[in-house]
Structure formats: structure tokens, C-alpha cells
Amino acid sequence: MKDFQQILQEINNKKVAPLYLVQGSEAYFIRQFEKAIIKNCLAPEDIAMNFVQIDLTEQTLDDFLFEATSYPFLGERKVIFVREPRFLTGQKGQVIDQMLQEKFIDYLKDPASFTVAIFFAPYEKLDRRKKLTKQLLKMCQLVDVTSPKPHEAEKYFAQYLENSGYRMEDKAWHLFMQLTAGNLSKMIHELNKISVYQAQTEVITLETVEQLVPKNLEYNVFELNRLVMAGDIQNALQFYQELLMKKEDPIKIIALLISEFRLLLQVKILQEQHSGQRQISDQLGIHWYRIKLALEKCSHFSLEQLADALESLIDVDYQIKTGQMDATTSFDFFVLSFCERTQMISN
């Protein structure tokens, strides 16, 4: 099977197939493919007339066949993007009657020479037992645009970053990866934004990433946990307040914070059993970098202190849920008493 880059290469060399099936949901790849097709198949002035989009949630395969078989207006070629071809999957809803099925299969067997038809299937799986799916897969060029695995995405993005003429500080890189969570489209999207901010400067700093890349709740809780563990009461409280102002649900925050403390406790226990970073990572099934950070975080704390913190947090959760204390107060007092206790013991 040809890989994505090979297919792009072919299209750029004007070797275009009459039928494509683009399967997967990596938005960046899809966009690249769309651009390549339009650039190589249509002259700019023809786009208005000879580029057609068919949305199968609103239109039918009949409409597609009509478009595909009618001659292009003026230009040489016609490009048809077919969206939402759900009939290829196991999903119910798009029913195609027998007559139409046969007509469609006939077309697949002998597609019009002037038409390039692209079926975009951003689905996890196709139902390969279906007759139409089988026929389409047989006759078309399959383009795999499934999302790459996080580490592949990282690799790909590193290359992309270099090609765009940027460099990232080490810390900025780690934060960037944490915030984009292995999603290639997001990485490129965010880099585009950063490039607007600093068109001239080559090095992307930690501060830039911090200020411009939106943070998800998971990251924010991670950061909150870091502040609490560092005994930075002031910033921890302020940060929590900010999260509430962003209308984050306090119960959600506490729940995530509990899981974060739980991880620290697990790491601590495994460490005391003399497991190394890699081993812990394997055992818990969590990315090694997170384990590394967790080890750093909990190095100044005893097992008892971590267990204690976890328990108090569970108590905070209980108090909030039973309406004994409001969310702000109970969290504030948790932080205050946790920091006080841990400092008392370490002093």
C-alpha cells in the first residue's frame, strides 16, 4: 500500500486517480490532500464552476452520479468531494436502494475520465462486508489519514517545525507537547498562531507557549498540583480561583487533583520498592515524562504525607458534595493545612 506522502507526490506529478477514498480523521492530512487535489486538478478560474461538494447527509448518491457523469463546464476536469458517506460504515441511517446500488457500482467499475471523485470517510472503521464498501475499496485509491500515534506525531511535528524555520526551547517543547496531547493537527494549528506572533524570531520560548497555547483542564490541574506540592500557597490559591472563574467545575477539578495525588502516591510506593523510572512507567502504563515529573514532585514528601494529602482531598470532595462547605473555602483550607503540616514536619 502506498503511504500518504507517496500519494501526495503522485498527485503533484499530475498522476491523479479517478476515485479516492480518504479514510481517517487527521485534519491536517485531510487539508493537505484537499489542497493538493484542487491545486493539481483545477485551474484557479475553474474552481467556481467545476468544483462540487456533495454532502450525503443532505444529498443522495443519485446527485453524485449526476454530477460525476455530466461534463465539466469549460475546463478539462471536474472535482467532486463527497462528505459523510456513512453508507460505507456499520452505522444505520443512509439507506440506498437496490437500483441505485447497482448504478453506483457500475460507475465505480467505469468512472468518467473527466471526473475526480474523493470520498472523505473520517470514521474509525468501515464495514468491509458491505457490497458497496467492498467495490469502492477495490476500485479506488485508498488514502490513509488516520491520526498518527502520539510519538509519531511528535516526530512528524519536529520535522515540520524545522522546515518552518523555528526552534523551541527544551522546556517550551515539553510544555507544547503536554498541551497538544499528541494531536498533530492541534500542534500545527498552534504553531501557525505562534508564527503570527513572532514572524521574525526563530526561537520559541517557554513564555510564548505558556501564553498563547490554550490549556486544557488536565494540564491546569497538573499545574495546580505542582504549586501545592511546591508549597506555593499564594499561587496555588490564585490559580484555583482562576480555574473557577473560567467556569471549571470544582468537583471536576478536585476529582482530577485526587487522581494526580493518587499517581504521586503510586509512584512513591513503587519507588520505595526500588523501581526505576522506566519500570514505574511500564507498570502504571503512563508516559515516562509524566513519571519523571512525578518523581521530582514527590521526592520531598514522605509516603505518609502523600497518603494524608490524598485522604484530605477525598474529604474535601465529600464536604463539597454534601454541601458542608463551599468549594472555594474547603479547597483553600486544604491547601493551607497541607502546606502547614508538610512544612512543620520538614523543618
Partner: peptide
Amino acid sequence: QMITQTLKNAIANHNPAHAYLLTGP
């Protein structure tokens, strides 16, 4: 500052995005 700077650059370089989402308290 950083947000306004980015938007200023986008305008000055005639390179605006099609859609912006501004979030915050």
C-alpha cells in the same frame, strides 16, 4: 499583551485567520 500583539501582527501582515475564538472570564 501577547494576544493583542498577535492580532496586531496578523493585521499588519494581512494574514488574519477566518475565525477567532476569544475565551476568558
